[in-house]
């Protein structure tokens, strides 16, 4: 039964990710006075891509063809670790938050290799930039995560969320910092403005898009889907760790349905905030990103210091 719910939750994750992307696009269009496509448009795009014949460069090796599958399944694995509608599922015990970061690294490793595989300058450029940004983002992310895990004294996400739920509403300065740090890192890691522009058409400013320039057909669909999944994953992480209320603690249909509604509501609000931020902020130069991520790291560090100084001093 538990395993069934775990599989159901992961499937929900995968199924809902394009919806979030569609909703985000809709909010952005609305804010920018453009006519918005349907919320279901990402699904149609994915379907269209899977029905097309993929074209692969003659320079590409087997790694280029297999990489999308590896990236997609690594991202699904990361998704299975994060509690979406219910806590205390068996999959979340199989790996903790550090392993989740590891899965992201796994997917990124292959994405960067695929970018280098064809031997064009753009692919190499994208890989180089992506690896740089991610290696700066990782310490900031772990700093924020450490703050949470030290408060809950566990690295298991499910237990951490239960811990926050048990305590009720406690104003924790450290959580405020960790929240902001995690948001900044999430923006950088999912390639949103101001770090990267997912809708850019100029190759020189691309990061994520430059790596997947050579992909087409079902391979492109998988990679797009994986990046939508990653966006949703970060959203759920932020929503469920800092505002876990509503998540199901028992496996009754009622609680699960309530949990689903709660997370959809939370994600919708988060997407609106992200859309507003993306509309207001301009993309920054590549070498400003280090300052941005340095600030994220600083916030994480302050969060941890305030946990040690303000909350748990002896």
């Amino acid at each position: 039964m538990n395993w069934l719910i775990a599989i159901l939750q992961t499937t929900l994750f995968v199924a809902l990710a394009p919806l979030l992307a569609g909703w985000l696009k809709r909010c952005k269009c609305y804010l920018q006075n453009r006519k918005a496509p349907s919320v279901l448009q990402p699904y149609r795009d994915l379907l269209k891509l899977t029905n097309k014949q993929p074209v692969v460069s003659e320079q590409a090796s087997w790694l280029f063809i297999k990489a999308p599958y590896i990236i997609f399944s690594a991202t699904i694995l990361a998704a299975s670790v994060v509690p979406l509608i219910a806590v205390d599922l068996p999959t979340s015990a199989s790996a903790d938050v550090i392993v989740m970061v590891g899965f992201f690294a796994f997917a990124r490793f292959f994405l960067a290799l695929a970018g280098l595989d064809v031997g064009t300058a753009f692919g190499g450029m994208g890989s180089s930039r992506e690896m740089t940004i991610s290696s700066l983002a990782e310490p900031a992310m772990l700093m924020a995560v450490f703050t949470i895990t030290m408060t809950a004294s566990t690295t298991n996400l499910s237990w951490a969320i239960s811990h926050v739920l048990e305590q009720g509403l406690v104003l924790r300065p450290s959580f405020v910092f960790a929240l902001f740090a995690l948001i900044l890192v999430a923006v950088a890691e999912t390639g949103r403005i101001p770090v990267d522009n997912p809708t850019t058409h100029l190759e020189l400013t691309m990061i994520h898009e430059a790596m997947i320039l050579e992909y087409s057909g079902r391979h492109l669909a998988l990679i797009e889907w994986a990046s939508q999944l990653k966006l949703m994953l970060y959203g759920v992480l932020i929503a469920n760790i800092f505002l876990p209320w509503g998540i199901a603690q028992s496996f009754t249909p009622q609680a699960l349905g309530y949990g689903l509604l709660a997370i959809i509501g939370k994600l919708a609000v988060l997407a609106i905030i992200l859309a507003i931020a993306e509309t207001l902020v301009a993309k920054m130069r590549l070498f400003r990103v280090q300052e941005y991520l340095g600030f994220a790291y600083l916030l994480g560090l302050l969060g941890m210091l305030s946990h040690i100084i303000l909350e748990a001093s002896r």
């Binding site: 790694l63 290799l113 280098l116 031997g119 700066l136 310490p139 772990l142």
Partner: peptide
């Protein structure tokens, strides 16, 4: 340590990507 691990990943992406992949 996290930074080290991430830089190591970048470094070995470079090694494998430039040695075995491409033209």
């Amino acid at each position: 340590l996290a930074l080290t691990a991430a830089l190591a990943a970048a470094c070995f992406v470079k090694v494998f990507g430039l040695t075995f992949l491409g033209v």
